[in-house]
């Protein structure tokens, strides 16, 4: 029951809304914007937290959690299957390679870093395609239809998009792991903090939950060239910069592939320009499947 409702997400460190990441985001916001009480006040105002769009986020979070548990996870190809298939494929196609023996600290450290970077890169590209391929945009616009942002907006994602991102994860983690097993054998593992990838943990701690909020937290300009700040993601959600800042944790992909934007902090308007938003759960689920019909 807890799993179906998604409540377990608050106590699992590999989830974005893990309580510690939420508290750290709140602390960052309070400390950094303590002299700008209007910003904090707005985030916690009824106007934002009880906006029809926010109310949809809450209902959507519970509904999509159930869909994931009951329909997506049982049917989706897992990283395990990809790993086994790919290691056997590599051996059969490229032959046997003598296992490379390196110190565990380097093996585990490089694996943890590589899986984080590879995962971030594939997230960038799939996210970009979700915007640029018309068929995919039909599903991704559910996420961008949010007119106000809160941490649960992260989960306002159509189940079709969940499936695509799940497959992406299986292929990415599976491929990286298979390559490591092929060259280094057993002994690989992830450096973890409280059960999450070390780098993910750090990224989540430095305000990941402010990405979907009205708190314009920015990092120093030099840092924003490498790590995407919450404000840069808010720009992505604004009606004018939807085709910029596709990245998740790292901004290098946006920088290298020409989609990075930062500039001065300005007042942003979130949502979609070209349509009246739907605030119904059924509409969010079904509209992308029935292009002409609005529920």
């Amino acid at each position: 029951m807890v799993e179906l409702s998604g409540l377990d997400f608050f106590v699992e460190s590999d989830k974005r809304i893990y309580w510690l990441y939420m508290v750290s985001a709140l602390m960052l916001a309070v400390v950094i914007f303590r002299n700008q009480p209007d910003i904090l006040r707005k985030q916690f105002s009824k106007e934002v937290l009880w906006h029809p769009s926010a109310r949809l986020d809450y209902v959507y979070f519970v509904a999509v959690s159930a869909v994931k548990v009951l329909l997506i996870v049982p049917l989706l190809v897992g990283a395990d299957d990809v790993i086994v298939w790919m290691v056997v494929f590599l051996q059969e196609q490229f032959g046997y390679v003598e296992r490379i023996r390196i110190a565990s600290v380097w093996l585990v450290g490089s694996y943890t870093l590589l899986i984080f970077v590879a995962n971030d890169l594939t997230r960038y590209w799939l996210h970009r395609w979700m915007h640029t391929v018309p068929l995919l945009w039909r599903f991704h616009r559910v996420h961008h239809s949010a007119q106000v942002l809160n941490p649960l907006t992260f989960y306002r994602v159509h189940p079709v998009e969940n499936v695509l991102f799940g497959l992406r994860y299986a292929l990415t983690a599976g491929s990286v792991t298979a390559l490591y097993i092929y060259f280094f054998g057993a002994g690989i593992s992830m450096m973890q903090m409280g059960g999450a990838n070390l780098f993910v943990f750090v990224f989540s701690l430095i305000g990941a939950n402010l990405r979907h909020s009205h708190i314009p937290l920015r990092y120093p300009a030099k840092v924003e060239r490498w790590i995407l700040s919450p404000y840069q993601h808010q720009l992505h959600h604004s009606v004018h910069y939807g085709f910029k800042n596709y990245g998740s944790a790292l901004s290098v992909w946006d920088r290298w592939f020409g989609t990075l934007v930062a500039g001065k902090t300005r007042k942003l308007r979130f949502g979609l320009l070209d349509e009246t938003p739907t605030h119904s759960l059924l509409g969010a689920f079904l509209n992308p499947l029935n292009k002409g019909i609005k529920l």
Partner: peptide
């Protein structure tokens, strides 16, 4: 299975 590599990096959702 022993390596528990199935732990998702930070869910499989979009952003």
């Amino acid at each position: 299975q022993a390596l528990s590599l199935t732990a998702e990096i930070i869910e499989a959702d979009g952003d």
